[in-house]
């Protein structure tokens, strides 16, 4: 449904997006991740036809965004990052206006507006002026606007930014419901949220694609987990035992506090030594106070490829494109 090939966008000398390529199939819900300023919004603006690409091509619903922008926009519901709405219109008036502008036939308009308002959870503020609704509601009015013409593709640019936790839950729920009927590109920098809602993530950084794949696979690729262990014994008694276990790549942190000690160990990918440690410590007659394996998170992965050195991030990108090939 969305196909981007070698997309490059420059603002004067500033390179915002650099030869970005990806494909999104019908029915996919894809998270679009990246730190602030990575080029997410720029890419989205090219896809929605608001800005042109400097080079490269993009097609949405089979139409070229540059050559046939109108057809692209007919198939697209777009929620911009900051939802600007006309403050002097009532919510329903605004949505009726948008429905008219998007060519919803007059006979279906009332139903379309009501359905969009219900989906976005704003049925209770229809009579309010747009300028008087809270930020959370405004975001949802924008979502209702994106939904009103029932387009096959939705592009949501940080739909949850600035919302309180309850509103975020509500938006996530809405996105999950919509996933059955729409192809969705969902940009965010709140990773947990993306992990919950989407089946695949694209991570971009400095305008280039750094990773592409299902969140759990990407996370698994980070490799290392951390083991937290607390024992009622001096560190010297435990360390040798810990070090000889398979999968323990190192014990970078040891804190001793009188009779008890705490360890933080690095565990290689695919290993879970918890049961074995428990068994051995019991055999040795040592009392365990804490034993926990922290699996890698999307956050750690994201951090590694966007904050880590360029050197560290390159192999990841290579691995992911190989994976993407395999997935296809």
């Amino acid at each position: 449904m969305i196909s981007v090939s070698e997309l490059t966008k420059r603002y004067g000398p500033f390179l915002a997006v650099d030869r970005l390529s990806f494909e999104i199939a019908r029915g996919e819900v894809v998270g679009f991740l990246g730190p602030n300023g990575a080029g997410k919004t720029t890419t989205i603006r090219v896809l929605t036809g608001f800005h042109p690409a400097s080079s490269g091509t993009a097609t949405v619903a089979g139409f070229d965004v540059a050559a046939d922008s109108l057809s692209v926009r007919k198939n697209l519901g777009y929620l911009p990052q900051e939802v600007p709405i006309y403050p002097d219109l009532r919510v329903t008036e605004y949505l009726h206006y948008r429905a008219k502008l998007k060519g919803v036939p007059s006979r279906e308009r009332r139903v379309a507006v009501e359905r969009a308002m219900e989906k976005a959870g704003i049925a209770d503020v229809g009579r309010k002026l747009c300028g008087q609704v809270s930020h959370g509601y405004r975001q949802r009015v924008g979502l209702a606007d994106a939904l009103v013409a029932n387009p096959p593709i939705l592009i949501l640019d940080e739909p949850t930014s600035g919302l309180d936790p309850n509103q975020r839950v509500r938006i996530k729920q809405v996105v999950r419901e919509l996933a059955n009927e729409h192809t969705i590109l969902f940009s965010s920098h709140i990773l947990g949220e993306v992990q919950e809602v989407t089946s695949r993530v694209l991570i971009i950084h400095r305008g280039t694609l750094r990773a592409d794949g299902p969140p759990d696979q990407l996370v698994a690729r980070t490799g290392v987990s951390t083991l937290q262990l607390g024992v009622q014994a001096p560190a010297a008694n435990v360390l040798p035992l810990l070090r000889e276990l398979p999968g323990i790549a190192g014990v970078p942190q040891v804190t001793a506090d009188g009779a008890s000690s705490t360890f933080t160990a690095v565990v290689a990918a695919g290993h879970d030594p918890c049961a074995e440690i428990g068994r051995r410590l019991l055999q040795a007659g040592l009392a365990v106070r804490e034993l926990r394996l922290d699996r890698p998170t999307l956050e750690a992965y994201f951090h590694a490829i966007t904050e880590g050195s360029e050197r560290a991030s390159e192999p990841v990108a290579a691995a992911t494109s190989a994976d993407a090939e395999a997935a296809r």
Binding site: T48, F50, K74, L101
Partner: peptide
């Protein structure tokens, strides 16, 4: 100024 130009011009309107 308010950014509604983006919402307006990304609607299917010439």
């Amino acid at each position: 100024r308010t950014g509604s130009l983006e919402t307006l011009m990304t609607a299917p309107v010439r």
